[in-house]
Amino acid sequence: MKSRLSGAEAQPQAGGLLIIKQLKLETFSVNGTPEMIVNAPECIYDTFNHAASSPGHLQLQSGDGKIRTEGDGFLWRQNDSFLTISNHVYTVIKTSVWKPTMP
């Protein structure tokens, strides 16, 4: 399994669409460790094209928790593992304080 999309509830719509509340999207590496976790209050999932989208807010976190990104408006294409955040992107990266040491 490369990715898993889940939610608190799903409302079927015409045209193979689902309105998903409390979206949680997870992607995994080949050894099963989580790479990315996405949360959004609501989105529309296109079951034919395997794509989730919303004009609303989105939060993303890397599997190790060191990168957190949020923004407004997104499109997730499941087939090619492509996520776009359209506006107001803000990221926090946790990192070590780099102090060079000479050999």
Partner: peptide, 13 residues
């Protein structure tokens, strides 16, 4: 922590 602002973003898996 590093704060990073941008207008847009994409992740290409």
């Amino acid at each position: 922590e590093i704060g990073l602002h941008s207008d847009h973003f994409y992740y290409d898996g």
